[in-house]
Design a binder for these strands. Structure first.
Length: 158
DNA sequence: GCCAACGTTGGC
DNA sequence: GCCAACGTTGGC
């Protein structure tokens, strides 16, 4: 049975992990997400789902490229690692609190599709698009097929 | 660096 | 279960 392909947007600070980093390593476990809503979204992910790779907290915030969900969700190992910044003393192996998926590089945009440009097309994306909502802090969020299509049409071409 | 928005924590 | 305090996110 083939579940329908779904789409997501995942934020990252490029100073920490950028699209270039993903291109180099090819596949990356998306560890360190410690927000329940974001976690729940990752738990819904299936291999093959599309990912908009978003650079946040940087000079030019926006979508830097595309990635693909490479695994179903599994427990984030950093929650058990006392030496990790992401260690969670309240999480147990029997009932892990935090999940992650592996994310695979797909391609890098010729230029970042900027948040500014995305906002300029708010009408096409719909008011409910969380990325352009005020005060949005969610690091993993769902994107509809229509929004995905709209955003790819906005991709900067060389 | 600032600040608004939001999630989490902890006292009661 | 409420809510103030606190920490974090993220655009600017």
């Amino acid at each position: 049975m083939n579940a329908k392909r779904r789409y997501w947007l995942m934020k990252t600070e490029p100073d920490t992990f950028s699209i270039d980093d993903l291109q180099r390593v090819r596949i990356e476990p998306w560890n360190g997400v410690r927000n329940y809503q974001a976690r729940n979204h990752m738990r819904q992910m299936q291999p093959g789902d599309g990912v908009l790779f978003y650079h946040s907290s940087c000079a030019v915030p926006g979508i830097a490229g595309l990635a693909t969900v490479a695994t179903a969700a599994y427990p984030d190992p950093t929650q058990f690692d006392r030496k990790s910044d992401y260690f969670d003393p309240k999480s147990t192996r029997e009932e892990p609190r935090w999940s992650l998926v592996d994310v695979a590089f797909d391609r890098k945009f010729a230029d970042v599709l900027t948040l500014e440009e995305i906002k300029a097309h708010a009408d096409a994306l719909g008011d409910e698009f969380p990325l352009i909502k005020r005060g949005n802090r969610l690091s993993v969020l769902p994107v509809t097929a229509a929004q995905w299509k709209t955003l790819l049409k906005l991709e900067p071409r060389p």
